Simulated scan of single mutants.
Amino acid sequence: MTIKFGIIGGGVMGEALLSRLINQQIYLPSEILVSEPQAQRRSLLTQQYQIAVTSDNKEVVRAAEVLFLAIKPQVFDSVAAELVEDGVVVEGQLVISIMAGVPLNKLEWAFPGQPVIRAMPNTPATVGAGMTAIAPGNHVQLGHLERAQGIFQAVGEVVEVPETMLDAVTGLSGSGPGYVAILVEALTDGGVAAGLPRAIASGLALQTVLGTAQLLKETGMHPAELKDKVTSPGGTTIAGIAELERLGFRSALIEAVKKAYRRSKELGS
């Protein structure tokens, strides 16, 4: 059977995507080929998903209709040099990269004349709740965009942005799960410090973050409006918010996004 979806890099994000694509029957296991350097990892992917695996990147490039690059940006130069040296190009093949900081012009150098799309998903994609921003290259047509959107909709929501915004996307939604994880951990520790058992504090913190996000999304309410609704004069919430403001909580998050944004730009330079 024809290989319709090829992945170079069988790590966490690559596995998250292929598992959802198979689960939603967008691709059959027999239509997927993954290149992965670690033998143990190849064995795990084969056993778990009944897909074909290889250690040869060129085999995936030659076979796949859609090529998905899920490797670390630091190793892209060596992988690209290998492909360029051997002239491995498949005409009309859609190339999708999730490498942070690797620009479209660099990707199009490695895959000349090919439709190339840069994408920035985040780790909630592993449970189908991801947020992915995509930016099209010079040779991308509407059909390519629709295909990429269909792939990433398997793991969450998708938005199209110009490439100039992708570093900012990386700083916000790409790195954001790390910030939220610290928030949940800190809320839990605060509950423990106030006398709650850790298991109860953890459950309260998790559901509070999840429920607040769901409320904001479903109602379209501005976060400031929700904040105002839950703060009564002289009450507990405004006391807590005042302390957050005193300690620079809001500024710390803003600066974290900006710092991650700058680091993403450095990776691409």
Rank of each mutant, 00 (worst) to 15 (best):
V155S: 00
D77Q: 15
E225P: 02
A201L: 10
A129E: 13
L206A: 05
V184M: 15
L17T: 13
E255T: 13
S202A: 15
L226D: 03
T188C: 06
P29R: 12
G14S: 08
V12P: 03
V95L: 01
E15C: 08
V158S: 02
M131T: 15
E160I: 09
P103R: 14
E245F: 13
V66P: 03
V102G: 00
E163G: 06
D228F: 09
V53A: 01
G11Q: 12
F249V: 13
S30V: 07
I8Y: 10
L206V: 08
Q149M: 14
V84P: 00
E82S: 14
P73F: 08
G9Q: 01
E82Y: 03
A64F: 07
R198N: 13
V12D: 06
K227N: 00
T123R: 04
Q214C: 05
T212G: 01
G113T: 14
E146Q: 15
L45F: 10
Q207C: 02
Q153D: 07
V169F: 11
R118L: 01
S55V: 10
K265I: 07
P177W: 08
Q141T: 14
Q24P: 06
Q141M: 01
G191V: 12
V53I: 15
E146D: 14
V84G: 01
A239L: 10
H139D: 00
F152M: 05
P124R: 09
A256T: 14
V209I: 13
P73Y: 11
V155C: 04
G220I: 02
A125V: 12
V116I: 14
A80D: 02
V60D: 06
S19D: 10
G178N: 02
I182P: 00
G137I: 11
A129N: 04
V61K: 01
Q214T: 11
S173D: 05
A193M: 14
L107T: 10
I7Q: 04
V90S: 03
A148L: 07
H144L: 09
T2Q: 10
A133F: 05
L142I: 15
Y27W: 15
S35R: 05
M120F: 10
L21F: 12
D189C: 04
N57Y: 09
M131Y: 12
G195C: 12
V95E: 00
A70F: 07
P115Y: 10
E243W: 09
G92T: 09
L104C: 07
P124V: 10
Y27E: 06
Q47D: 14
M165A: 12
I22V: 15
G240S: 03
V79E: 05
R62V: 06
G113D: 07
F152R: 11
I96L: 15
T236E: 04
L204Y: 07
K58G: 06
A239M: 12
A199C: 03
V159L: 02
A39V: 11
I32A: 02
Q153Y: 08
P103H: 12
L226Q: 06
R62L: 05
K227V: 08
N57M: 06
I151W: 12
G9T: 08
N105M: 06
M165V: 10
